[in-house]
Amino acid sequence: MKAMLSEAPGGPETLVLKEHPLPEPGKRQIRIRVRAAGLNYPDTLIIRDLYQMRPPRPFAPGGEVAGEVEAVGEAVTGFAVGDRVLALTGFGGFATHVCADAGSASKIPDAMPFEDAACFVFTYGTSYHALKDRAALKAGESVLILGAAGGVGVAAIELAKVAGAKVIAAVSSEEKAAFCKECGADETIVYPREMDRDAQKTFSTQIKKLAGGEGVNVVYDAVGGDYAEPALRALAWEGRFLVVGFPAGIPSIPLNLTLLKVNQIVGVFWGASVMRDPKAHAANMADLFEMYAKGQIKPRISARYPLKDAPKALQMMQDRKVLGKVVLEVD
């Protein structure tokens, strides 16, 4: 088999494509012949030893794959050789073959291409868990999505619209704003790359104006940094602030803001929730597959690369130039 390996900590340019021993599935594992692998921001962190998971080297990044079951380990039920599946692997997905826990895999509909499947569970799983399970988003409410042009952001736009909410997409460029409009956002805000106090006040005022009334009911924050506080200030009474990620840095929040409008700051750790409550995850996946079949949601794949160009694709992700999703097509 071939794998795009991280042999030492570093950026995408340190990855090398090499022959690697074919893995054998362990107990409750399946081996997948990878046909497509989705890219996600944690892939840029794990190769630099900046992620909470630090696999022993050499390892391949890639936490989300789709392909066919090639071998089944001991005590696996519900899967057979030849099944078309998607799976969360944590790492190892940038390869022709990978072993995954059967509990992290799902059979995919026959009509779903492998490319869509490889870009499906991480983004839609995260955003559905966030909006449904953590924020209890209701029809008629409003939601602000920070970093809305990225994978989880676009998924949040689509899922919020399915829920009947008003969506305000906040992004860093006019190109990204136009893209979010195409994805279903009702309103957009282009925020500056550098957010000083004056810019924060302007940003918060813009959010409130577009939301109408007292502000937004839900903030979906996949950015963090200096963007978090003005978004929190723009929450309405009993608003919910979802902490999804912080590529712009971990923010410092004045907690008195939560008291003034009885707001909630809610953590979204989707990966842990999948492990702790697999039945709820399975129910959410059934909902998402149904939405996909109805055409309500669909991964917005803006770029496709062969496995050998994984470093180029990851650099694009690291530079925040991705609109929607990027996928590796694995021969």
Rank of each mutant, 00 (worst) to 15 (best):
Y41C: 06
I265V: 09
P12H: 04
V218Q: 02
G93M: 03
D83C: 12
K325F: 15
R300G: 01
G125I: 03
A222R: 00
A283N: 13
A139V: 02
S252C: 14
T258V: 09
E13M: 08
F122W: 12
K166S: 08
A185E: 01
Q52T: 12
P247E: 08
G164I: 10
G90D: 05
P192F: 07
S252Y: 15
F179V: 05
E174Q: 11
L88A: 07
P251M: 13
I253D: 07
I207R: 00
T44G: 00
Y51N: 02
L146G: 02
G78N: 15
A102N: 07
P192H: 07
D331S: 14
T123Q: 14
V266P: 09
Y220P: 00
K166W: 08
C183H: 10
L307S: 06
R48E: 06
L235P: 00
V243Y: 04
F246G: 09
I108N: 02
A286K: 12
G140D: 07
G38I: 07
G82H: 08
K138N: 05
G271W: 05
T89L: 03
Q264K: 13
S106M: 15
T14H: 11
I145W: 00
K2A: 11
I32S: 02
T77L: 04
G140M: 03
P23D: 04
K18R: 07
T14Y: 13
N40Y: 09
A248E: 11
D110Q: 07
C119L: 09
L257W: 12
C99G: 01
C99Y: 08
H97R: 10
I46R: 00
P113S: 05
L232P: 12
P311E: 01
Y41E: 05
I157E: 04
M285P: 03
G239W: 00
A272E: 13
T123G: 14
A286E: 14
L88D: 00
G213L: 08
A177W: 03
L232F: 08
D83V: 06
F91E: 08
V85G: 01
L131G: 02
F269D: 15
V327M: 06
A310T: 14
G93Q: 02
G147A: 08
A80L: 12
I46F: 14
F114T: 13
Y191H: 04
G245H: 13
K2Q: 11
C119W: 05
R28Q: 10
G92H: 02
A293K: 10
L232M: 14
A118L: 04
P56I: 11
P9Y: 05
D186Y: 06
M53K: 15
I250G: 10
R84G: 04
E174D: 10
H129C: 14
I47T: 08
F179G: 10
T96N: 12
R300C: 14
A177C: 05
A75N: 15
A293D: 10
R33C: 00
K209I: 13
V76Y: 15
A130P: 06
T188K: 02
A139E: 10
E13S: 03
I108P: 00
S302V: 14
F246A: 11
A170D: 05
L131A: 00
A102G: 01
M112W: 06
L257F: 13
P109S: 10
T77E: 06
N256Q: 12
A228H: 08
L210G: 01
A163R: 11
Q318S: 12
V219H: 03
H20T: 13
Q318G: 09
E229W: 12
L259A: 10
